[in-house]
Design a protein around this nucleic acid. Structure first.
Length: 874
DNA sequence: GAAGTCACG
DNA sequence: ACGTACGTGACTTCT
């Protein structure tokens, strides 16, 4: 038989942890569910990661235990279990039953003792044991075969205590944890310990003497007067505390390891409980088909020879594809629906049908879609045009709440309690088994989607109007989808030979760097592996690690830069990393993405970011190198797609700070932009109290970092990192800045208060972002939400502005009858390609249109350039 | 699939 | 005392 793997969970401790770690969630039925939810999340991770053969959840039994005989006040002074938590225990037990996980409790004993006893029993046959708790006391059980997992903030983040880890962290062996508690006590269990002895002192004593007993044997050697006095006076209390903290490993349990064998959950039962508790995401994960099993039968009419009568002047339409990349996927078929019918055509039929194409092109026929950009671009790929799109389920849902980042109709629909659509994965399968099923099944699937679109439209439009977001949706996002679709199908021409030439140069340099690095290190290793690199740098060479990650030493660039002067290998590694990145992501990566037409067709995700920005995928063309010259050369491969044409690039100057000036109404900031001042220099003048001439480059650099910080929702730590100064100095900088720009300070204070009150923040065009964590009692979560509250209106309004500019530019290009094509958007810049004879016009039109996209109380400023490649637009 | 790293605004 | 800058996507390694 394979080796046993036994997982023992401390039920009460984990339930408490989950309860306090997560916000107090309530489901529709008014039951609080946060503890059950957190527990479940953790359990799922454990089952997946550890794959136990045996498992047990141990519970505390009743109020009194044998420890109360030793010390009446044991666990005294504890707050009563909150009723919101108590009510969750029955669900937890039920859930565990459904999981087929044994549970056990024993009169007079705590869960620790059950776990301790079982782990001791398992030591005999050397089984691997994992103990899981939220209580660090359990770490005393760590041994060669037993690892103790303690949950940290949240429930899924876990710290693993092996004897080695205990030694690294405390400098003592696991059994000495008991001695530590004996000396320092434990406030949460009301274990007294020795007054005046905390963790530091306890550990110092134990490192010197080894145990409580030995401390007292050597009591005369202790020179610190007060400490010695405390120890002497509390000797009995120290022994008692040690006893209380000791986990009983010989509890009279009536179960054995054999009773704990685990064969997996009863999925039916688990799904039922998830259903009862409304754990939607979990439900989906374990049983997608059950979770979304359509309730109602649907009658889909399959068209083989469509006529004009089949198409009405108002219909939902869905282009069915198996792959999410609509630019490369084949269209399988088309679903249509209105109040009276649900129809389906295979794409072969649709493509040959004049009746359908005529209907499709007629803007008077209103079309409601799930993802209009996908429809536009995929049909355009097939040489088909679609006009008259008036609803987009995906965009509308995104505007209502950007945090619902679904791309498929089934998920979007379920967000609105509409469950009559199946997941694509369920219909097509996944991985290697993914394939197109019989036409009936596709017809039904597509039919359910269009029906959902048809039925959900009024509900979601109502919601948009209620939130005063209908204009944002209808005047901004919907028209933008059409423009983006066109940009995607246009694509941008990329010269393979240029990329290959750069790639060859890189390969030569990389080979040399690699050889040099091996030479210096004295051995071959994988430079791309942070783990192996860490061993070479910090263990073999002996450099001092500056930062740690969850898994080991950090070898990130900012760390390596600090070490650069200490060893010649560092520079080579930084160089290797930089060039390696260029080669793998931008040479090899981009070459793979060039289509047969010699172009790259990225997709802009319009319903993804939390702020309203676009994102770009497959490939990402919004992060093509520019900051360093070596990388910037990549841009030389991006060229116009027609002979005699140019690329024309225009970018907003300081758009985020201009938005801040407008939104905060800070007089000085407004004045600076009206005077068209260099904003970083101006900031330096104000913060350092000097004149223009006195601003040094370091002062300007610092001011620039502060300006960035302000936009991000500043923290002293963040600024200290970016400027490599102390936190104190950073804090001083920030104070001085905010004193110089009182309007900004007022705005930042107000926005946080406002977000707490409303639960969300908004942009200039009324885009929303909900920030539920802004009222969290968890410092980190709350702080993060506060910074987000400060940043999102700025970043999001800038996104609104450039989106508006794109719509205006497309209209202007059309109105002027230009051949110019919009190709890319990179957050604050637009890239066009244009015939030479239109360049003069663009020089005028582009800045004019972009600068007047939205009238602010400060001017918007646009810089532009053109050239024969993207590299030359500088 | 997560973690680490690094490219962009 | 907490442990951080805001928003993204892609690649590599490693479990």
């Amino acid at each position: 038989m394979t080796k046993k793997k036994i997982v023992l969970l401390d039920g009460n401790s984990l339930a408490y942890r989950a309860f306090f770690a997560l916000p107090l969630l309530t489901n529709d039925s008014g039951i609080h569910t946060n503890a059950v939810y957190g527990f479940t999340m953790m359990l799922q991770n454990i089952l997946a990661d550890e794959k136990p053969t045996h498992i047990l959840v141990a519970w505390d039994a009743g109020k009194t235990t044998f420890r109360h005989k030793t010390f009446g006040e044991y666990k005294g002074g504890r707050q009563k279990t909150p009723p919101e938590l108590s009510e969750q225990f029955p669900y937890l037990r039920k859930l565990l039953t459904a999981y087929n996980i044994p549970q056990y409790e024993l009169d007079n004993y705590e869960a620790d003792d059950i776990i301790g006893t079982l782990s001791q029993l398992s030591e005999v046959d050397k089984s691997e044991v994992v103990v899981i708790s939220g209580d660090k006391d359990l770490t005393q059980l760590a041994s060669e075969h037993t690892t103790v997992f303690i949950t940290r903030k949240g429930m899924t983040d876990i710290e693993k205590y092996t004897p080695l880890h205990v030694m690294e962290k405390y400098g003592i062996e696991p059994p000495q944890i008991i001695d530590m508690k004996g000396l320092m006590g434990d406030a949460s269990d009301n274990i007294p310990g020795v007054p005046g002895v905390g963790e530091k002192t306890a550990l110092k004593l134990l490192k010197e003497y080894g145990s409580v007993e030995n401390v007292y044997k050597a009591i005369d050697k202790i020179t610190a007067k007060k400490l010695k006095e405390n120890l002497v006076e509390n000797e009995q209390q120290a022994y008692m505390s040690k006893e209380l903290a000791t986990i009983e490993v010989n509890a009279p349990i009536t179960i054995s390891v054999e009773n704990l064998s685990y064969d997996g959950p009863d999925m039916e039962q688990v799904a039922d409980i998830y259903q009862e508790l409304k754990f939607k995401t979990l439900l989906e994960k374990i049983a997608p088909q059950k979770a979304i099993e359509p309730q109602q039968a649907i009658d889909v009419g399959v068209l083989t020879n469509p006529t004009d009568e089949d198409f009405t002047d108002e219909m939902a339409i869905h282009i069915e594809m198996m792959d999410e990349n609509y630019l490369t996927a084949d269209i399988i078929g088309i679903g249509l629906a209105d109040d009276n019918q649900v129809l389906y055509m295979s794409f072969a039929v649709a493509k040959e049908s004049d009746a359908f194409k005529k209907w499709l092109q007629n803007p008077d026929n209103k079309k409601y879609t799930s993802d209009s950009k996908s429809a536009l671009a995929s049909l355009a790929n097939q040489g088909m045009a679609i006009e008259g799109i008036e609803f987009d389920l995906l965009l509308a849902t995104y505007i209502v709440n950007p945090s619902t980042s679904y791309t498929d109709v089934a998920s979007v629909a379920r967000e609105f309690e509409y469950t009559d659509v199946q997941q694509d994965e369920f219909v097509y399968g996944k991985g290697a088994k993914k394939s197109i099923p019989a036409q009936e099944a596709v017809a039904e699937h597509a039919g359910r989607k269009v029906q959902a679109i048809w039925k959900l439209r009024p509900i979601i439009e109502e919601k948009l109007k209620a939130n005063d977001q209908f204009e944002l949706y209808e005047e901004l996002e919907l028209p933008l989808a059409k423009i983006l679709g066109k940009m995607e199908s246009t694509g941008v021409k990329v010269d393979r030979d240029t990329l290959r030439a750069i790639g060859e140069e890189l390969s030569v340099k990389l080979a040399k760097l690699e050889a040099d690095i091996y030479d210096i290190a004295g051995e071959k290793f994988n430079i791309n592996s942070p783990k192996q690199l860490g061993v070479i740098l910090f263990d073999k060479i002996g450099l001092t690690p500056i930062k740690k990650t969850k898994t080991g030493y950090s070898t990130a660039a900012d760390v390596l830069e600090k070490l650069e002067s200490q060893h010649e290998i560092i520079g080579h590694i930084l160089n290797y990393r930089q060039l390696g990145k260029l080669n793998s992501t931008y040479i090899e990566g981009l070459l793979k993405e060039i289509h047969e037409d010699g172009k790259i067709h990225t997709r802009f995700q319009q319903a993804l970011t939390q702020t309203g920005r676009l994102s770009s995928i497959n490939p990402n063309l919004q992060n093509i190198p520019v900051r360093l010259e070596e990388g910037r050369k990549i841009r030389a491969a991006f060229v116009p797609s027609e002979p005699g044409w140019y690329l024309f690039a225009a970018d907003y100057s300081q758009i985020e700070l201009r938005v801040l000036a407008h939104m905060s109404q800070d007089e000085k900031l407004i004045e600076a932009f009206r005077a068209d001042a260099d904003i970083h220099t101006q900031t330096a003048m104000d913060v350092f109290g000097v004149s223009t001439e006195e601003v040094t480059s370091d002062m300007r650099r610092a001011a620039k970092a502060v300006n960035f910080g302000i936009v991000y929702g500043i923290s002293d730590y963040g600024l200290s990192q970016s400027l490599d100064i102390t936190r104190k100095d950073a804090a001083k900088f920030i104070d001085t800045y905010l004193a110089s720009f009182p309007g900004v300070k007022q705005y930042m204070d107000d926005i946080v208060v406002d977000a707490k009150m409303k639960g969300y923040v908004t942009t200039l065009m009324n885009r929303r972002r909900y920030l539920p964590e802004i009222t969290s009692s968890n410092f980190n979560l709350r702080s993060f939400a506060e910074r987000t509250a400060m940043n999102t209106p700025i970043q999001g309004s800038a996104a609104d502005i450039i989106k508006k500019a794109m719509i205006d530019m497309a209209a202007r290009i059309e109105a002027e009858g230009l051949q110019t094509r919009m190709l890319l958007q990179v957050h604050d810049e637009l890239i066009f390609e244009a015939p030479e004879d239109e360049i003069e016009k663009l020089k005028l039109i582009v800045p004019e249109v972009m600068e007047s996209a939205l009238a602010l109380d400060v001017p918007l400023k646009v810089d532009w350039a053109f050239g024969l490649s993207w590299y030359d637009t500088k």
